[in-house]
Design a protein around this nucleic acid. Structure first.
Length: 280
DNA sequence: TACTAACCTGTACG
DNA sequence: ACGTACAGGTTAG
């Protein structure tokens, strides 16, 4: 019996993952070369590979984390409202490409593009009586032609996806190394990739590279911070420059703590729900 | 250093 | 119907 039950729809529909679907009571999702199925009650996970990737981060010490981030009153309220929300541990390459694709795009568009990429370049597999297309290997995407990528709806992101896949396939980027090294070092390496800016780098680090202090600042989070923390953060000006972003990140970690990424997820969820913005 | 226009694509709105 | 705005940003200048 879990002390904290996972709420799958909160978690899966919180902008972290894009290749999940619900079929009756079971959710299925593509995660790299794997397909994961999960049922909410009773909580049960299966996967094509049979590997335990701890996708739902059940090994995290939630008692500690939730208590820690609840030092902030606003976050505390969000945790109380959405206790089943979780951070996920994704396949790094899929996460990397997903968030490059996400830049300046809507959720639906991101989903459509990623599905097409899987269908065009990924391996078809069967799992629990259903068909899935796995996320393609870096080499496969790196060697894709421009027209094939354009067919996936990538538009001007085509160049970014191709270059990003190339640096991974040529081992200029090694996710295992990035998981081990620190936030700052990882971020510098990711920012060197064409198509990756501060926000996308933070998403990749938080969702797939074990950097729980990463705190992606998109236009929504900036608005949320302005709304609740304007005194603390003095966010003047509209654009977030590199220097401002770094400065702000330091303030955020000082305020929210080492698990700031969890705080971000809860704040985001609460605010989106409050405003009942279209979500999927 | 700080700021902004342009950017593929799809959909929602008037 | 058809133009305009906007969508979880990044880059070039």
């Amino acid at each position: 019996m879990q002390k904290y039950a996972v709420n799958l729809s909160y978690t899966i529909n919180s902008g972290q993952v894009f290749l999940w679907e619900k079929d009756d009571l079971i959710w299925h999702g593509v995660n790299g070369f794997d397909v994961i199925s999960v049922r909410e009650t009773p909580f049960e996970i299966n996967s094509l590979s049979q590997n335990k990737s701890d996708f739902f981060r059940e090994s995290d010490d939630l008692d500690l984390i939730l208590k820690n981030i609840s030092n902030d009153e606003i976050v505390k309220k969000a945790v109380r409202l959405f206790p089943g929300l979780r951070l996920l541990r994704q396949d790094p390459f899929q996460c990397f490409i997903s968030f490059i694709v996400s830049a300046n795009s809507s959720i639906q568009n991101i989903q459509r593009i990623l599905k097409k990429i899987c269908k065009k370049f990924g391996t078809k597999v069967k799992f629990e009586g259903k068909e899935f297309f796995l996320f393609p290997e870096p080499k496969k995407l790196a060697h894709a032609s421009t027209s094939e990528l354009l067919d996936c709806g990538l538009g001007y992101r085509t160049k970014a996806v191709k270059e990003a896949s190339t640096v991974v396939s040529e081992k200029q980027i090694d996710f295992d190394y990035l998981k081990k090294t620190n936030y700052k070092n990882t971020k510098e390496i990711l920012l060197d990739v064409y198509g990756i800016g501060n926000k996308v780098a933070d998403c990749i680090m938080l969702f797939s590279l074990e950097k729980l202090e990463a705190f992606p600042l998109d236009r929504w989070m900036v608005r949320i911070l302005q709304k609740y923390y304007s005194k603390k953060l003095h966010l003047n000006g509209k654009s977030l420059t590199e220097k401002k972003y770094n400065c702000l990140h330091q303030i955020i970690v000082d305020h929210f703590g080492a698990y700031a990424g969890y705080s971000q997820q809860f704040l985001y969820k609460m605010e989106r729900d409050l405003y009942q913005k279209k979500w999927l």
